[in-house]
Amino acid sequence: MKVSIGGPLKLAFRPWVEGLENIPAEGPAILASNHLSFSDSFFLPAVLDRKITFIAKAEYFTTPGIKGRMTAAFFKSVGQLPVDRSGARGAGEAAIKSGIEVLERGELFGIYPEGTRSPDGRLYRGKPGGLARVALATGAPVIPVAMIDTEKIQPPGKVMPKLMRPGIRIGGPLDFSRYQGMEHDRFVLRALTDEVMYEIMKLSGQEYVDMYATAAKRQIAEAAKAEREAEKAARAALVQAQKEQAEKEKQQES
């Protein structure tokens, strides 16, 4: 299934790749990537010879009907692992446990430290819980990855993807063995995550924003809501002014 999906993706979009030699031929490794698009989890597996497992919402695998079964089959084929994200803390622990299990099998584990897709193409602060804890629990090397231009292929609101060449830059492995046994130190978790994000920033060339992407999305949503309300109020004020003007003209005529 991976071949049947990866082949057409590479043929249609012809993604360019730098740093494939940094992916180990065998053994566990964590691929920590920026997250620009829904398609990131498809393009990266498509260019790798080895299987890579990502975390995905359990709903993608449990939706009923033909469409639901097709979606589940597609996500399984590209190495997505279902995790119940119904509770913030429970979801985080489930993701960490799943990542550790993947790495203990000697496989590749993919993770997006930002926790969600970038709302505007910039690189946001990494969340220290998942990436750092999995890295310290397993001792697996962390390989920074930068997805390039994937957000331009299918921008929000667009149904049909744009045929263009996305890029993937893969950096050298990062060794955090100096932090072994310190997985409960929040300052260590923060330092490890920030180091990985810095490497991703160098690879991607993105502007870095020192806030979480989830907070940025809330700000953007609130600003859009405020703009809509302002436009609605302006239209209402215009209608009221027109009514008052019409009433004034009517009184003058009489």
Rank of each mutant, 00 (worst) to 15 (best):
Glu151Tyr: 14
Leu136Glu: 00
Ser118Val: 06
Gly110Pro: 00
Ala146His: 14
Arg169Asn: 10
Leu136Gln: 00
Leu131Ser: 13
Glu114Pro: 06
Ile170Thr: 06
Pro144Phe: 11
Arg125Glu: 11
Gly115Ala: 02
Ile153Met: 15
Val134Leu: 11
Lys152Arg: 15
Thr150Met: 05
Gly115Pro: 09
Leu131Arg: 06
Ala137Arg: 09
Gly157Tyr: 08
Arg133Leu: 14
Ile143Gly: 07
Ser118Gly: 03
Leu136Val: 01
Pro119Asp: 01
Ile148Pro: 15
Ala137Trp: 05
Gly115Asn: 02
Thr150Asp: 01
Ala132His: 03
Pro161Gln: 00
Pro155Thr: 07
Lys127Val: 07
Gly167Val: 08
Leu123Lys: 00
Arg169Thr: 06
Lys158Glu: 13
Val134Gln: 06
Arg122Tyr: 10
Lys152Val: 12
Lys152Asn: 14
Tyr112Lys: 07
Pro119Thr: 09
Met147Glu: 15
Asp149Gln: 14
Ile143Asn: 11
Leu136Cys: 01
Lys162Ala: 11
Lys152Asp: 15
Val134Cys: 09
Phe109Gln: 03
Glu151Asp: 15
Met147Asn: 15
Pro141Asn: 06
Ala132Cys: 01
Pro166Tyr: 04
Lys162Gln: 11
Lys152Ile: 13
Phe109Ser: 05
Leu131Met: 13
Ser118Leu: 05
Lys158Pro: 06
Pro141Tyr: 04
Val159Asp: 03
Pro161Arg: 00
Leu136Thr: 02
Gly129Asn: 10
Thr116Gln: 13
Val142Met: 10
Pro141Lys: 09
Leu163Asp: 08
Ala140Asp: 03
Thr150Val: 02
Ile111Pro: 01
Pro119Ile: 13
Ala132Ile: 03
Tyr112Ser: 07
Val159Thr: 09
Ile168Asn: 13
Met160Asn: 07
Lys158Val: 15
Ala132Gln: 05
Thr116Ala: 09
Asp120Lys: 07
Pro155His: 09
Val145Ser: 10
Val134Glu: 04
Met164Trp: 12
Ala135Pro: 06
Ile143Lys: 14
Asp149Phe: 13
Arg117Pro: 04
Arg125Ala: 06
Pro166Ala: 01
Ala137Asp: 08
Phe109Tyr: 11
Lys158Leu: 12
Pro144Glu: 02
Ala132Tyr: 01
Lys152Gly: 12
Ile170Asn: 05
Ala140Gln: 04
Arg125Ser: 07
Gly139Asn: 02
Val145Tyr: 08
Val134His: 04
Met160Thr: 12
Ile168Cys: 11
Ala135Glu: 05
Ala135Phe: 10
Arg125Val: 00
Arg117Ala: 06
Phe109Asp: 02
Ala137Lys: 10
Gly157Gln: 05
Leu163Val: 12
Thr116Tyr: 12
Pro156Asn: 11
Thr116Gly: 08
Arg125Met: 08
Gly121Trp: 12
Pro144Arg: 08
Val142Lys: 06
Leu136His: 00
Arg165Ile: 08
Pro119Ser: 08
Gly130His: 04
Glu151Leu: 14
Pro113Val: 03
Ile170Leu: 11
Arg165Asp: 03
Leu136Lys: 01
Gly110Lys: 07
Asp149Ala: 13
Gly126Asp: 14
Leu123Phe: 00
Val142His: 06
Arg133Asn: 10
Lys152Trp: 13
Pro155Lys: 09
Ile168Tyr: 09
Tyr112Glu: 02
Val134Gly: 09
Pro141Thr: 01
Met160Pro: 03
Leu108Asp: 01
Arg169Lys: 15
Arg125Thr: 10
Pro166Met: 03
Pro113His: 02
Pro128Ala: 13
Pro155Leu: 14
Ala146Gln: 14
Arg125Gly: 04
Lys162Thr: 14
Lys158Asn: 10
Gly171Thr: 05
Gly139Lys: 04
Gly129Trp: 00
